[in-house]
Amino acid sequence: MANNVHKLRDKGADLEKITINLGYVDLGRIDLLVQEGFYSNRTDFIRTAIRNQLGVDGEAVKRSIVRHTLELGLRDYSRADLETVKAAGEKLHIKVVGLARIAPDVTPELALATIESITVLGALQASAEVKAALADRIR
């Protein structure tokens, strides 16, 4: 029976939770649209509104990414990646729009030896120890 058990992917890996404050009138208007069946719930409405606005501003975002030489999407940094950087005597300047992940087996010492700076517009996933070690390098 144990052979049939498979670990499901962590639900939070693809999402970052945010909190917003809305006025009562705006919230009521959203609830009305949900009640009328235009959206399945408040979250569906808010995600749709955000995606629509990002589409409107899409060209500006693309130009900014090019100007700042940012990576777009998901960027993983494994222990092997950082050990290769260290062996080459180099340091990384991580710039990501989306999600940057530093592998759980990366030690604070290896991170300090290989990462000069981190700029993430989105979310950074790393162990608490690595985040603490790099605190002064995270912008």
Rank of each mutant, 00 (worst) to 15 (best):
K17W: 10
G37L: 13
G98K: 00
H6G: 09
G12K: 09
R42K: 15
A113D: 14
N4Y: 08
V120L: 02
I18M: 02
D14K: 07
A123L: 04
D31L: 10
I46E: 08
S78H: 10
V5H: 15
A60L: 07
A60H: 09
L27T: 06
A126E: 02
R137Y: 11
F38S: 14
N52R: 15
S40Y: 04
D31I: 04
A80V: 09
N3G: 15
G28Y: 03
V96I: 07
D31Q: 15
H6P: 02
D26N: 13
L124M: 00
D76A: 09
T107N: 08
K131Q: 13
L32W: 04
A132G: 03
R101F: 00
E116A: 11
V130R: 00
K131N: 15
L82F: 06
L54K: 12
V34P: 01
N21V: 12
E59W: 12
R63W: 03
E16D: 13
E16Q: 05
I18H: 01
I115T: 04
E90C: 02
T84N: 03
R63N: 11
A13G: 10
Y77M: 03
V96W: 01
I30W: 14
R67D: 09
G28H: 08
G122L: 02
R29H: 05
V61Y: 15
D14I: 09
I94D: 00
A80H: 14
Q125G: 02
M1H: 02
R139Q: 13
T48S: 12
F45W: 13
K62W: 14
T114H: 08
D105R: 04
Q53Y: 05
K131I: 03
N3E: 12
L74K: 00
R139D: 03
D81V: 01
L110F: 11
T69M: 03
E16T: 13
E71P: 00
T48D: 10
R67Y: 07
L32Q: 14
I102Q: 02
A49K: 14
L121A: 09
A128N: 06
S127N: 02
I30L: 11
R42F: 05
L32Y: 11
A2Q: 05
H68D: 12
V34I: 14
Q35L: 07
A88P: 07
D105M: 07
G23W: 04
G58Y: 11
K91P: 02
D76M: 14
Y24A: 10
K86N: 06
H68F: 08
G73I: 03
S127E: 08
P108W: 02
A135G: 13
D14P: 04
L74D: 08
T114D: 01
I65D: 08
F45C: 01
T107A: 12
V5I: 10
V85H: 07
N41L: 09
D76K: 02
Q35D: 10
G89N: 05
V56P: 05
I65L: 06
N21C: 14
R101C: 02
Q35Y: 14
S64G: 08
R75T: 01
I18F: 10
Y77V: 01
